[in-house]
Amino acid sequence: MVHKGKKEKILSKVIVVTSGKGGVGKTTTSAAFAAGLALRGHKTVVIDFDVGLRNLDLVMGCERRVVFDFINVINGDANLSQALIRDKRIENLYIFPTSQTRDKDALKREGVEKVMDQLRKDFEFIICDSPAGIEHGAMTALYHADSAIIVTNPEVSSVRDSDRIIGILAAKSRRAEKREKPVEEHLLLTRYSPERVRRGEMLSVDDVKDILSVPLLGIIPESETVLKASNTGVPVILDPQSPAGRAYDDAVARFLGEQREMRFMLPERKRLFGGLFGRAAS
């Protein structure tokens, strides 16, 4: 992009958090990533694309502050600044809630495009929290993506659905349509249990990497603290006690180009001083 005028133009990046399968941790990941990027000083907005089943607001702890939503802005009933909710804990972080309407086609193509163009002018990172499935909402969420975080559980149905989504990203995204550089793909393995992998009960990181052949961004261990985070409406990355939170922090750092060794690949109790530091991974 060109540098013009007094305000330096932002090079913005649209990131879709997607998976195909439901319940694998898309919203948790969206919330954690948005918070992590904002904590590092990047102006970030996280958008809920799950029209009809709004939940990002709850996970982000701003459910009582929703006045206008995505669909209101698309229909011209409100402007963007009225609908964006500014996070009270983290500077540079904004939440864009969706509507509870049952109208499936409320996300009109031109409307979404206009909103994305507007957001690109203002934000460094635009995180699109995709709904499950491969219907209109999921297709719209991934259409504008420059990068994709493919959230996958080490489990057959999740891996298969991720593979499907990877195929769709390569064929139906804006970048694919315009024959631009393909969407940058990142694999995020969530709900990982090193102990069960050791026992041969769960697909390992390498298994999933082999099957999907997408570069690994991070491994998020199965952790009780994720439920605690959504219970209280605090992105799990803000909990320094949480192994999942630390794993998300690593993933965000890697996303920004930092080198960080993969953690949480081995059962914790095997480590020295396991009793002191390790138990949180269970």
Binding site: E155, V156, V159, R160, V197, R199, G200, E201, M202, L203, S204, D207, D210, I211
Partner: peptide
């Protein structure tokens, strides 16, 4: 192990 069965089934499908 069940994990290796899972991997094989996934690769085929």
């Amino acid at each position: 192990s069940s994990a290796s069965i899972a991997k094989e089934r996934l690769q085929i499908v």
